[in-house]
Design a protein around this nucleic acid. Structure first.
Lengths: 249, 249
DNA sequence: GGTCAACAGATTTTCGAAAATCTATTTGCC
DNA sequence: GGCAAATAGATTTTCGAAAATCTGTTGACC
């Protein structure tokens, strides 16, 4: 029974596949913030019928990646300064709790997973090509895995799920900032420090470093997006204004 | 243009109506934990086609009220001691943060809303009839509104959304405990004390009282469910075991 | 010239049938 | 008798067409 990942992915139902692809396309900003998600266009893009698409979109709405309006259809969730800072503030609080619990309760197996996750991450390049302006999908996967490994031993499925949701939303803002400046910050050292504090069971230090890690990301992303000429328009809000400026340009 | 609530509800799309009804039926335990949600049965129950039902179920899965398995369909999310205590621990942490922010930032308008919400709640009976063993839907609505009013000024849509989701999940456990014992705890005084601490901007006291409020609910619900002969089966986990015991009895 | 209603095109929403998948039972074989 | 494959029934999953709704435009009327 050859159960390769390829097979496993093909064995998925269509709505599960569409959900995965849509999520990836939105987080990676292949579908830009506030972009209208016409069912017809998505039907063509993913080569499926209406049902799997609507189901996937409904699911993504709950994750805050998609917005929905009665009889008006779906959009990629918009972005704004306020939402970004709200998101990051909330992430800090959630991860502070989860990290504390995790460090207090983590076993040796947890330590081992954490070390392994860091090792995998440390061997990857963050960006794809030299001028691509996009984050490597492997790096993204391992980065997410590392941050999950940090809080994995918290013993709360609820907090883990919230952590994942917020992390994913934050990833979208990071992708946007990378698109605009093509410079990613080198934060491997920060990750290592957080890990070491966690391994030493130094809760206060781990929590503080994690908070600063998130705050630095927030600052970098905020500045990148404010100074990006093409992308700052996404921050101004109303879609009508944006459409006009794009049509004019 | 008479825009009554009746009209507004009828103007909803079908999947929005089904979502609302399903959510209410699950939180109120008209649909019991772990119960299989056959599409055919739901189609008949809510008198719609497949699409609106699947969309609503997908949405509820994200809220943790429904579980989904590939090609096997949907179930009402199961309940367990572990999930209950995880849920309540997480609620405490979330509401602690949100309440702190809310008390620190709340305006007079917030105070007024809070007082109004408490007043409405204080004039309602918790249970429906004398022996109905079910929570009054008006009380439930106002209870939720009161707890939301407490944290409404936190300034974070993210935290508010999480608070709502967890509160709703907790409501289901409370409904279950009421079904089993028909005795609800009289907690109007607790609510009043939390409110007063919040109005006095005494963050520490408000947060502590809120924590104790949730912990008391947790203890009461946990005990009610453990001692309830018919319902403790829901707590034992695997559906197979439960099915056998029900089929035998 | 400005405002409102009606219309046409585009899009979303819903349905019911058809295809794919699973589950439980039966049958055949060892 | 016990085990595995085949089968039938039930259920989920997907599709494509039809109905409902919205949006922007045209044209009539004031």
């Amino acid at each position: 029974m050859p159960d390769t990942r390829q097979d496993a992915e093909q064995a998925q139902t269509l709505h599960a596949r569409v959900l995965r692809q849509l999520r990836s396309d939105i987080v990676g900003c292949q579908l830009m913030p506030n972009e209208r998600l016409t069912l017809e266009a998505l039907r063509e893009r993913y080569e499926v019928g209406w049902s799997p698409i609507r189901e996937a979109l409904m699911r993504l709405e709950a994750d805050g990646l998609v917005c929905f309006e009665q009889n008006k259809g779906f959009r990629v969730a918009p972005v704004s300064r306020d939402m970004l800072s709200d998101l990051m503030r909330s992430r800090i609080e959630i991860e502070t709790v989860a990290l504390r619990w995790s460090v207090e309760r983590g076993s040796v197996a947890w330590e081992a997973e954490l070390v392994a996750a860091f090792h995998r991450l440390s061997r990857l390049r963050k960006l794809n090509g030299k001028r691509s302006g996009s984050i490597s999908s492997e790096w993204s996967r391992e980065h997410r895995a590392f941050h999950r490994a940090l809080v994995a031993a918290c013993g709360s499925a609820t907090m883990l799920s919230i952590q994942q949701t917020l992390f994913e939303q934050a990833e979208r803002y990071v992708a946007l900032s990378i698109m605009s400046k093509a410079s990613a910050r080198n934060d491997i050292g920060e990750h290592e420090q957080i890990m070491q504090a966690a391994l030493q069971r130094n809760v206060a230090r781990a929590v503080t470093l994690n908070r600063e890690h998130i705050e630095r990301t927030l600052n970098k992303v905020m500045r990148a997006l404010e100074s990006a000429p093409g992308l700052s328009a996404w921050f101004e809000g109303r879609s009508a204004a944006r459409r006009r400026s794009l049509a004019a340009g």
